[in-house]
Nucleic acid binder design. Structure first.
Lengths: 109, 109
DNA sequence: ATTTAATATCGTAATATTGCGATTATAAAA
DNA sequence: TTTTATAATCGCAATATTACGATATTAAAT
């Protein structure tokens, strides 16, 4: 096996999990941190800042782009990556909605 | 390769990523949903509710237990899993702290 | 003490992810 | 047009994850 059985879960469960999954790697958190703190928003700068190869950073950027949380705008030879504020807010909302559920114990435990 | 280079990231980045990672699987989201909605809090019931083998559910429960978001209390032959409200709130807080960063674009893009 | 029910753990196959060197695009500069 | 700089993609090796059958463990019931 090894393949996640997405078909047995709801769209919402799959969607939420896929967002969490993309955020579930320290390099991608670090990339977001660097972009937000405006230490680096260009692939090559991220390569120097973090200690990962260009191909690796590019791959992580791609995954972040996939969920739309960052967007890249071409700036001459380089690409400037920045947070897509709308998507950021919308993801923030989805996660908040999940975490704001009432988790108090009633019947069981 | 294939091994995540945790040593090049901050503790905070690694910690945040590891929480996201655990939440980054639809089965684990589904388990949390079932526990919260009090549809099932016992391993065997989760096995019937979701369409996964007992060993698989047990493994997912273990990972959720690892970050402390659920706790299991022995109830006769079975174990009742429920949300650890303190940990839930604390994780909620950590994620909110991350997402409440000011992501507005200034210098770049 | 033996049986039964529930859960955890082990071992393993299938698949996914991570990381990187090499190569390929892309676009500005010479 | 050739060179140069930047980023994306390909291909691959190492490792991790997912899922599950089989087997242990645990605790109640008989």
């Amino acid at each position: 096996m090894g393949i996640t059985k997405t078909e047995i879960f709801t769209d919402n469960q799959n969607r939420l999990a896929s967002i969490f999954k993309v955020l579930g790697h320290p390099a991608r958190i670090a990339i977001l941190n660097h972009i937000i703190n405006q230490k680096a928003c260009i692939c090559n700068d991220l390569v120097s800042e973090l200690g990962l190869a260009q191909a690796t950073i590019s791959q992580h950027l791609k995954e972040l782009k996939n969920i739309g949380i960052i967007k890249g705008t071409i700036e001459g030879k380089s690409v400037c990556y920045c947070i897509d504020e709308k998507v950021w807010e919308s993801i923030k909302g989805e996660l908040a909605y999940f975490f704001n559920q009432d988790v108090r114990v009633d019947k069981c435990c």
